[in-house]
Design a protein around this nucleic acid. Sequence first.
DNA 1: GAACCTTCTGTAACCGGTTTCATACTAACC
DNA 2: GGTTAGTATGAAACCGGTTACAGAAGGTTC
Lengths: 346, 346
Amino acid sequence: MQVGVMKQTKLTIADIARKGGVSKATVSRVLNNRPYVEKATRNKVLAIIEETGFVPHHSATSLAGGKTNILGLLVPSLANPYSLTVIQGVAEKVAGKNLDLMLYTTGLSEKNQKKFLERLSKNAVDGLIVLLPRESTNFESELFSSDLPLVLIDHRSINADLPSIAVTNEKGGFDATEYLISLGHTKIGFIAGLLAFGCSVERLDGYKKGLEKYNLPFCEEYVVEGDFTEASGYRGAKELMLLPTPPTALFCSNDDMAIGAMQALEEMGKRIPGDVSIIGFDDSPRASLAFPRLTTIRQPLYQMGESAANLVVDLINGKSVAKKCIVLKTELIVRDSCAELSKVKK
Amino acid sequence: MQVGVMKQTKLTIADIARKGGVSKATVSRVLNNRPYVEKATRNKVLAIIEETGFVPHHSATSLAGGKTNILGLLVPSLANPYSLTVIQGVAEKVAGKNLDLMLYTTGLSEKNQKKFLERLSKNAVDGLIVLLPRESTNFESELFSSDLPLVLIDHRSINADLPSIAVTNEKGGFDATEYLISLGHTKIGFIAGLLAFGCSVERLDGYKKGLEKYNLPFCEEYVVEGDFTEASGYRGAKELMLLPTPPTALFCSNDDMAIGAMQALEEMGKRIPGDVSIIGFDDSPRASLAFPRLTTIRQPLYQMGESAANLVVDLINGKSVAKKCIVLKTELIVRDSCAELSKVKK
DNA sequence: GAACCTTCTGTAACCGGTTTCATACTAACC
DNA sequence: GGTTAGTATGAAACCGGTTACAGAAGGTTC
């Protein structure tokens, strides 16, 4: 088709073999740094490779070798800082190894999940990290039936045998609640994330446990369900603050909702933390930028990505992994958005 | 190795052919939705595929078909909101098409660039989007010599023939400067990004043009070079404010540096915008969260990603593209971090 | 009814590597 | 010197698809 100077025809291992006066097998041995090649031969072949700039064809290598050297990373969305930080952790860890990173965004739709599942389960990737907080039984069972090395992140697995990275969501919920109680609060509103997500339920459980420990009543009407978005935090806060006896503190199941809640309170003329204390969850970058700076429960997102990458790489390499389920610790980060109740009593 | 129930041996097209009593060729035609298959035959094959859950082997398809259906996306780092937003735009556009997204992070090191170059240039991906603001002559020439569909983002290309997505960096720099001048500022400090980056130079040029238009002197000591990090903005601001006649306004070449500068000013007891006006560049998510909310020059990062994806897909499909170099517009976003000079005169 | 076109299908070559196996060569040992 | 072991190498099969080509069947055209 193309007129003009002919681009050098694509080099193959056969070309290298010919130039070197050796067989394809020998070139392959050199490429893969295998034994049984005489030093002189090896050097000769290496020189030719260097000189010609030969690079093995990725698909051919994968097909013949039975592995792709590709790690799949499945995330629901790129729009939240949560996914992004995890991705960073994975990418960083993967960079050193001889692995490429394939990014799939499912958008939470079942259809997309299915589509991606096809791609991965049979081939295409050597291993997979799935960041999929939503409970999704059929999804998981399909995954499990495949024998692809697979690590779930923050997915309250039905099957405890699946390798996974989790965080102490319940303890985080408990800690946040206990902290607010320690400041003297007894009327604590809770803006949950989508309760279809395992993490949301766990945080809610932690909240309940916290109340229980200090003999505070669990009040159904103090709990509203959001969807992790700022807007839902805003709505949730308004709803809670319009109760006959509104809470004096709000615990939001992530930072975005907390920031939405802060906006709602501001609009309602409530001072933070003067009138109402707010605590979030995640410690996303926004938390420390908010005004006032947001007290929150940190999830080690970056580290979750790293751990997942390490684990899946071990699984790929067939290493026996000691702990298939890794639970990372959440941590209370105290900033400026919570205050003692006594100080705010009118 | 594995004891127990034998996992179904990996299905191949040959298995499907056998079950259907047809040839591999026919199955392939069905899979690829090609003509010359009788309706009855097609349905029979489709039924078997459905029933067995057969999925073609990706590497085999790529090898035989000569295309990978993978789009490569090369970014220097995931740590800045800049890259992330572009990635979102690309990912979103790609999701609809039958393309997978391979993410490479080079970390700005020449060595990594080289490494990735090998992967991509010969095979591995069908097309590539490169987000590589650094000037890098040899890098670019290598890219150019390859015949891979390729789109550069925000890379002041030496070779104008390369398909690229750019923004009006110079105009953005000019607009920011003009805006500050319109507020009465005449002593305007400039914290540049790394001047090895094309965009940094262009913004600096815009700054100079702005001064020139209003007959203000360009003062060498009012310009410091940062590296796009918050820390460098902090340092740059301190340096500028300690000058004998410090500027009354700071133009920072990105938002992160602007936020660093705000911190420095706060520490020095300067009020923003009361004592010093600050304007950034990017309109990253942080800009609107900062206190005071940061006035800035918006880059349409998401749209840049989208445009790049569209362009590279067209190139892959061999469509004749009308405009190989797309320049997107920057936009002044006025918020709260700049004020009129007259009002702040002591 | 011969020549020709179209549709449908299968055979076999091919994509560019890896790997098994056979063989040649060298060194070692008794 | 004959057996043995280990290193070095190449021929050919193989990975799982796609596709060029050939041939069969059916329908037109003259």
